[in-house]
Structure formats: structure tokens, C-alpha cells
Design a protein around this nucleic acid. Structure first.
Lengths: 244, 244
DNA sequence: CGTGTCTTTGACGATTGTCAATGTACGTGG
DNA sequence: CCACGTACATTGACAATCGTCAAAGACACG
């Protein structure tokens, strides 16, 4: 088992000192298994711990008055969960596991100490929160201004790329791991229309599907259809404070 | 002129020490006027300075391949601009002034120093970035799952509340300061449909309009129509690190 | 083998977009 | 002061996208 998933994510961007690594490892001392479908944190209930994903796939979502659901974000190993909830008395969103997962809980005080003792790590946490912000604004633009087909294409590409970033064995053929209803709740569509869009993407030769697995047949065209931009490239971190 | 607009925003949440106040004032030593319609930072161009808004109203947006625009966020006095651009070599979004405005530029190194020397302020910057994140996810849910009328209602309420937070003299009658095309670009609608929705809200008795000014006639019903949640309430900041 | 979840498909309807025309306010230059 | 141009708001007719409803098929699991 790795010492710290979060440290691995940071370690891809900066060279961590052993002090920093030790501090990050303390965030992941405890760990907790969470079953597919289980809820880690529920909207409008008191905010609990923060978490780092060690294994699996989770999502955050909100429920609207009419019962419809909007999925806000998917979480992969190394991602930090519950940061928005940390600042509120009650959580603004629900976090649930899409597959059997493992998370490491820690409390706000631990994060607070990290900010005091390791300013470079603190800055990196702000940087990662901004990467997530840009991903959210990309999706905002997709929901506001692109077609259903483009939104589904963008979701497929984004999921593939985030899986591949975390598991090098992922290729153009992979298992999306989402139902069509979940794809719809993430893209602002109905499950029925998602089905139609998947079929169209298949007819256009951009993807292929069989038995729950999906193949990207024409990545270039899919990215064009999706207005896709890779937001994990092009980072500029030369200005970070010195390590401690 | 106030010493620091940003310090005022933070000061509403925590009691700042004089050291902290001095550090924040240094971010706003310089200042720059920017005219209505002028662009402060352009998408895909090298990222420049960060800014704090001292006066006026700005917005960030992205342009899509087909020429359509998605407005991501409006910025009021005391807001920090360009944080997403800071982490990239090239800016992911355009920032432009909606009215004649004044901003205070500072560079990434200044933010970096702030993180090293004032961990509590650093933590508050993360907190504010999370408030913004929650505002963005609220809008994501609005675009994905609510009707055109609800989105327009939500925009009206949000703008009013953010104006009132910054200028206590704002009442139920105020000037929105946006064209219907801008409202559409923020809500993912066309200008024509925004017009229809405004007329419907007026016919429903929720708002009144005359000569560019707008009156909220039934705030309760408007909030219900909009699924509105005030995200500046309910903050829980007892866990912040100690001040320096 | 039965049950539940998920996928697929068709028919129809509602919401929202597109196009085009007109109206209104405002500023600019003659 | 008036004519003109420009930006913005308003309205109607029509079209396209996407949602709703309903039914049937595929698949896994006990």
C-alpha cells in the first residue's frame, strides 16, 4: 500500500521534501472502506471529516426540489474530498461511492496544521482547488452552450483521461463505470437522451461499445466534438514558496 | 479610499491582526483604472498579474468554437481576480469590465509570500475559493437541471444579494447593469428567451421593471422559483490556524 | 427461474432556439 | 435643433432539440 495517495498526486508536480511527505502521510493514517452506493456525506447534514481517496471512484451531487439530481464531480484516487463542506456547518453536497472504495478521513484541524507548517503544500492545495475550479467552469460552459452530443463526448474523454492519469494501464478501451442515468445526471440530460447520443457517437464512428466497455475510435474527432481542453497540462508552478 | 478592499471582505469573517492587515494592504499598493468593455486578461494569452477589485463590476467568460460565450462569474469589489490563470501559463478565461472599474494588480510572488508568512490568511483564501466553488456548482446544477425561468430568477437574486453585501444602500429596487444578452450568456439562454422569461416573471408579479431598473416584488416566491440558497451564510471557521 | 436494474426504441409533446421585423433610447455630428 | 447610426429591447412565427411516457429487451444475481 502506498504511503500517501495525495503525496503521489502532488509529487507529479513538485519534488516533496521528506518533511512534507511525512506531514502528508499523517493525513492518511486512518482508512475506511466504503461500499458501492454508500453515502459518505449527505447534503444539509453537519459536515464531517475531510477525506482523501485511496481506491475506487466517488461522486458528489446535489438534489433539487423536484427530485432531479445534478452530479457535480467525480473523484479518483489521490483526490481530496469534502473541501467545500469543510467551510460550512452543513454540507452543500452529497458524496457517494460509485464502486467499492477506500478513503482516508482526517479533520479540519489537521488541514489547519498543514497550512501553518507547510506553506508550499498549502499553496499546492490552493492550486489543485483551482484546477478543479477550471474543470467545473469547463463543464459550466458545456452545460450552458454545447449540444447534448458534445456534453456526452466531453464526459467520455474526461473520464478516460482522469482514469489514465491514475492508472497507466488504461488504454482507448475501458469501462466507463457509469449507468446512462448517471451520465445524464452529470451532463444535464435524461437517460433516454444519453442513450440516443451514445448511439449517434457510435454511428459517427467516434466510439464503439460492447458489454459495458467502451472504445474511443477517433480521439481527435471526439475531442473536436466535445470542445475538449486538457486542464492538467500547461501548469506553471515556478512561483511556489520554498519547501520546509 | 479604503486601505484594502480584500481586507474588508476577510474582516467580515475574522478579526484581522495589524500584521495581517499590513500584509493585505501591500497587495493593493498599486491600482489601475479599467474602462467599461475593456479586457483585463484574455483567454489563451499568457497569464499576467492577479487583481483585487476595488470598484466596479467585472466578469469572466470563455468563448466556444462556434462563437458563443459562457459567462462564468461576476466580480464585485473585494473579490480576487485571476486565481485560475495564476496556475497556468495561459489564462483559461477572459476577464472584462462591465462598467468602469478600478483594480489592484499584484504578482504571484506576492501571493506566495502571503502564504508563507500568514497561514491564517492563506487558509481564508482557500475558504473564499471554496465559497466561489460552491457558487459555481449551484450554477452548474441550475444550468443542468432547472428551467429557463428559474435560471433568470436565480441570477437576479444572486446579483442583488452580492450587490447588497458590498453596498448597504442597495434595496429591492436596483439596477442590474447587464444587457439581456449578458444575462443569456450567464444563464445559457438566448437573449430572446431571456426577454420572454423576464416578461413572465413580471406577469407573475415576482419582479417589476422600468427604465433599466428592476424591483423584486416577491422575494420569497422568486427564491422559490430559483431554488436559491445563500452561500455566504452558514460558514464555520472556528478551525482556522492562529493569526500571526 | 424469477426479479430487479439497466438499456434500447418509438411516438409524441414541451421548452428553447432561430430568424426577422419593429420599436426605443441615446449619443454624435451636421 | 435635427438627422442619423448604433445598441438594446420586444414580439411573432416557425423549427430543432431534448424531455416524457410507454413498452420491450438484455443482463446479472439470488
Amino acid at each position: 500500500m502506498r504511503a500517501s495517495c495525495f503525496a503521489e498526486v502532488l509529487g507529479e508536480r513538485i519534488d516533496l521534501t521528506s518533511n512534507e511527505k511525512a506531514a502528508l502521510a499523517r493525513l492518511e493514517e486512518k482508512s475506511r472502506d466504503i461500499r458501492r452506493g454508500a453515502v459518505l456525506q449527505r447534503e444539509n447534514e453537519p459536515s464531517g471529516d475531510l477525506h482523501i481517496v485511496r481506491r475506487g471512484l466517488l461522486m458528489s451531487y446535489v438534489l433539487l426540489d423536484d427530485g432531479s439530481r445534478q452530479i457535480l464531480r467525480f473523484y479518483f484516487p489521490g483526490d481530496m474530498l469534502g473541501v467545500p463542506a469543510m467551510i460550512y456547518r452543513e454540507s452543500p453536497e452529497t458524496i457517494a461511492a460509485l464502486v467499492d472504495s477506500e478513503v482516508c478521513p482526517f479533520d479540519r484541524a489537521a488541514l489547519s496544521r498543514l497550512f501553518e507548517e507547510h506553506p508550499r503544500v498549502a499553496t499546492m492545495i490552493l492550486v489543485l482547488s483551482q484546477v478543479e475550479r477550471v474543470a467545473l467552469t469547463d463543464r459550466l460552459a458545456a452545460l450552458g452552450r454545447t449540444s447534448a452530443k458534445a456534453r456526452v463526448a466531453a464526459l467520455i474523454l474526461d473520464m478516460r483521461n482522469r482514469m489514465a492519469a491514475q492508472d497507466k494501464s488504461i488504454t482507448d478501451t475501458f469501462s466507463l463505470g457509469l449507468t446512462q442515468e448517471e451520465i445524464g445526471d452529470a451532463t444535464g440530460l435524461t437517460a433516454v437522451h444519453v442513450n440516443r447520443m451514445l448511439r449517434q457517437l457510435e454511428e459517427d464512428g467516434l466510439i464503439a461499445r460492447e458489454g459495458g466497455r467502451m472504445t474511443i475510435r477517433d480521439q481527435r474527432a471526439l475531442a473536436r466534438a466535445a470542445n475538449y481542453v486538457d486542464r492538467y497540462a500547461g501548469l506553471e508552478l515556478g512561483w511556489l514558496p520554498a519547501a520546509r
